[in-house]
């Protein structure tokens, strides 16, 4: 399948920060989660995709068009929900909808109204006067109905209450099911990652750590409880604690245990959260 977004060797240096080189492809029908510590460059990467800044090296192609080119008509196919919303404060929800809905040919008014009802969003209040949670709800209600092929969500659920988080997740699932679409999401909420992500792209201090399919990532780590801990380091060993060893290469580790006659009392997979923790260390 040809990718919808293709990032190749992207680099950008800022005063005190160096992003990249980053290469990442987004395929139709998938949800890719960007994961990293604060300041790892996720938002910068997304803004570069939206051509809000100029890269120092590398390319970004969106539906075959160079994102940094003169023709930006590809922006019709991308909806961007930024983490920090700029420029909306003076407008009411009604005005914002009037502006945004006119810019997208596939605007889904019914979905917008459903989300406004579900989240109980006051449309006649100025955006700047809404609470953070309400701002986020309105911004999401103005993102999904654009019905673009790609939806880019930068921290979409940070300020949502628990029921709203669940509603949003269900809406996003239905949205993904309705047509061939793709989502890029950054989130510090592990629930978002567990329930939504197909691929996980891990970043640390501007560098790409890896791009994993979720199950492949889960399967590549294992925790073993042993009757005795070997003195030397075990192949694949990431950390040890009392009778416990965490391995980042279960096949090699298990082979070693077999050869060394070490009895495994029990073994278990790691949580996604633990794995990300290990990757970001």
């Amino acid at each position: 399948m040809p990718s919808w977004i293709e990032i190749n060797g992207l680099q950008k240096s800022l005063d005190d920060f160096q992003l990249g080189p980053i290469s990442l492809a987004i395929e139709p029908g998938t949800i890719t989660a960007l994961v990293g510590n604060n300041g790892s460059g996720k938002s910068t990467l997304l803004k570069l995709v939206m051509n809000l800044a100029n890269a120092d090296a590398g390319t970004i192609e969106v539906f075959g068009e160079t994102a940094a080119g003169k023709d930006e008509s590809w922006k019709q196919k991308l909806a961007f929900h930024p983490q920090k919303i700029i420029g909306w404060d003076a407008y009411t929800g009604t005005t914002l909808k009037e502006m945004i809905s006119s810019l997208y040919g596939e605007w889904d008014e019914a979905l917008f109204e459903r989300m406004v009802g579900l989240f109980d969003i006051p449309l006649d209040k100025r955006f700047g006067k809404l609470s953070q949670g309400m701002q986020q709800k309105l911004s999401l209600a103005l993102a999904l109905p654009r019905n673009t092929e790609v939806l880019i969500l930068d921290e979409p659920t940070a300020f949502l209450d628990i029921p709203s988080k669940r509603h949003f997740m269900d809406l996003l699932i239905d949205w993904m099911d309705a047509k061939e679409r793709a989502v890029i999401i950054t989130s510090h909420q592990t629930d978002d990652l567990r329930k939504l992500a197909d691929y996980i792209f891990v970043m640390r201090d501007g560098k790409a750590i890896g791009h994993y399919e979720k199950e492949a990532l889960l399967e590549s780590y294992r925790r073993y409880w042993l009757d005795r801990l070997p003195d030397g380091s075990v192949p694949g060993e990431m950390s040890r604690d009392r009778q416990q060893i965490i391995s980042g290469d279960p096949a090699a580790t298990e082979h070693y245990f077999a050869v060394q006659n070490i009895t495994v009392i029990d073994h278990a997979a790691l949580d996604l959260e633990e794995i990300i923790d290990l990757l970001l260390k």
Partner: peptide, 16 residues
């Protein structure tokens, strides 16, 4: 359930 819906319920990627 659709692939995407089952993916969310089981917390497993759509690929799987």
């Amino acid at each position: 359930p659709s692939i995407r819906a089952l993916s969310k319920d089981l917390e497993i990627s759509v690929i799987t």
